[in-house]
């Protein structure tokens, strides 16, 4: 069994660092068109920030703010966002994930709508990746029981 490590330095610095890390994750997701990054990388950073919080404090401490039920919902919601945007293009009469056609329902020209559609896809990917990373960590650390952990 792993003993609980409660340390003032680690907790204090994590408390300062975690918002910055999450902000950087959103930057990586939103800036993915122009620079290295994208939905997967940003989602990984976002999930890692939650894992850092769980290591520095306690799993229960994070679960109170971000319940596991909600996390599992987010796993499906990101994929749903991806598929919904793709299917919307299909309904409007273009190919799957051909965002250019979305200018029929959004008030912008096709080029801007294409960039916007890519951003929507990236957000869906990011939500799913971060939620899945958190889910994997929770399952590993509680031995798959979804109960109170000993860590």
């Amino acid at each position: 069994m792993i003993r609980l490590i409660e340390d003032l330095h680690i907790q204090f610095v994590c408390r300062i660092m975690v918002p910055l890390i999450q902000f950087f994750a959103l930057y990586v997701i939103a800036h993915g068109h122009y620079s290295p990054g994208g939905g997967f990388q940003g989602g990984c950073i976002l999930g890692a920030s939650f894992i850092l919080m769980m290591i520095a404090y306690d799993i229960e401490y994070v679960k109170k703010r971000f319940p596991e039920k909600f996390n599992t919902f987010m796993v499906a919601f990101g994929v749903f966002l991806y598929a919904a945007i793709g299917a919307l293009c299909l309904i409007l009469g273009a190919e799957y994930l051909n965002y250019g056609i979305l200018h029929k329902i959004l008030p912008a020209d096709p080029v801007k709508v294409r960039a916007l559609g890519t951003l929507g896809i990236e957000i869906g990917v990011g939500i799913t990746v971060s939620a899945v990373m958190l889910s994997i960590f929770l399952n590993l650390s509680t031995f798959g029981k979804h109960e109170k952990s000993e860590v």
Binding site: R3, I5, D7, H9, I10, V13, I16, M17, L20
Partner: peptide, 20 residues
């Protein structure tokens, strides 16, 4: 700024884990 905060604290965490 990030390195200045994160690196010593990570070292501290490893030391603490070694002591434990």
């Amino acid at each position: 700024i990030f390195i200045f905060h994160a690196n010593p604290v990570a070292t501290h965490a490893i030391t603490k884990a070694g002591l434990d």
